[in-house]
């Protein structure tokens, strides 16, 4: 895949939720790695386990099986000091810019607080300079924006603040969970460009979680498709999207709005939907052998 060593990796991670009498396998032997200066897109439908993967990385959930590796070392059982370093190295940008900022605090507070917590030696003018730098990086005007409250900003501006807040602690990994799905189409591109800039200029490793495959193609070198808690197809973005092999990848692609294909009597989408329904969701509990179908392009076939 890439020559550089991964900064963060999931190795065979599983997570099971018990709800009432039923069991939900939200992550089934999930393995992937994030590399500096690269974006990995994680796509799949609601409930496929995308956000569970993010929460496992953010240590909101403990895995039921498998390991989380940070710079090659397992995270489980790390010293408290190491966990603090991990928390500052791995930052999250949430989906909803309207609820992820505290309405009673100014923008200065939002950006300054992570710096105070994670870089206590940074004080006074040096801290002010650092605050101005991250805000400039997300293309906001520091003197104008610092005294404002979240309600005074547009959705796009708020999402820029979320990104600035994440950048404030000099992270190495950004987990972005649907960062543009609540924004206007015309504003989305600016946020995606920002993610691309951060990756290139700061060498960040980015996990971009989305169900919008076209935006995944715009930001990600590599892509993985998740279905019912499993990564079912993964590899180089252009290869996976150009030559999709798993029935679920094909269904997702056929559902993307395409102005060249007006809705008709019988569509490719109908065909793919029947295809996937024919394959019992339950049977996906088995783990078929992974196949490499092209260089850096893998699938886990559906059981028959």
């Amino acid at each position: 895949m890439t020559e550089s060593a991964p900064i963060l990796a999931l190795d065979n991670v599983s997570k099971v939720f018990h709800r009432g009498g039923s069991t939900v396998h939200a992550a089934r032997a999930v393995s992937f790695a994030l590399h500096p200066g690269r974006t990995l897109a994680l796509v799949g439908e609601s409930g496929s386990g995308k956000t569970t993967a993010a929460r496992l990385i953010m240590r909101e959930y403990r895995p039921d099986g498998g390991r989380l590796l940070f710079r090659g070392e397992p995270i489980e059982g790390s010293a408290v000091r190491d966990m603090k370093a991990y928390r500052s190295a791995v930052q999250m940008v949430f989906q909803d810019p309207f609820s992820s900022l505290n309405p009673v605090h100014t923008i200065r507070y939002h950006v300054e607080r992570p710096m105070r917590l994670h870089q206590p030696n940074l004080k006074g003018a040096a801290r002010d300079a650092a605050i101005a730098e991250v805000l400039t990086r997300v293309k906001l005007d520091p003197p104008l924006i610092l005294p404002k409250y979240p309600h005074e900003l547009s959705g796009g501006q708020r999402q820029r603040i979320s990104i600035a807040r994440a950048l404030a602690v000099n992270p190495e990994v950004i987990i972005a969970d649907e960062p543009t799905s609540m924004l206007d189409v015309s504003v989305r591109l600016g946020i995606l460009n920002l993610l691309n800039d951060m990756k290139r200029q700061l060498g960040l490793a980015v996990l971009y979680i989305t169900h919008d495959i076209a935006t995944a193609r715009y930001v990600a070198e590599d892509i993985m498709v998740m279905y019912a808690g499993q990564i079912v197809e993964w590899g180089a973005t252009e290869s996976v999207l150009g030559n999709p092999q798993h029935p679920y990848t094909r269904l997702l692609l056929s559902a993307v709005p395409d102005p060249d294909r007006p809705l008709g009597e019988e569509t490719r989408f109908d065909h793919e939907l029947r295809n996937i329904r024919a394959i019992r969701r339950q049977s996906a509990i088995e783990q078929p052998e992974v196949r490499e179908i092209a260089p850096n392009h893998f699938i886990r076939p559906m059981p028959d």
Binding site: E45, S46, H211, L251, L252, A255, L263, F269, D270
Partner: peptide, 15 residues
């Protein structure tokens, strides 16, 4: 607020 597959199913139904 829905994912692409569900969105597509609903719009085909409306159509």
């Amino acid at each position: 607020a829905l994912d692409v597959v569900v969105q597509r199913e609903i719009l085909e139904r409306i159509h």
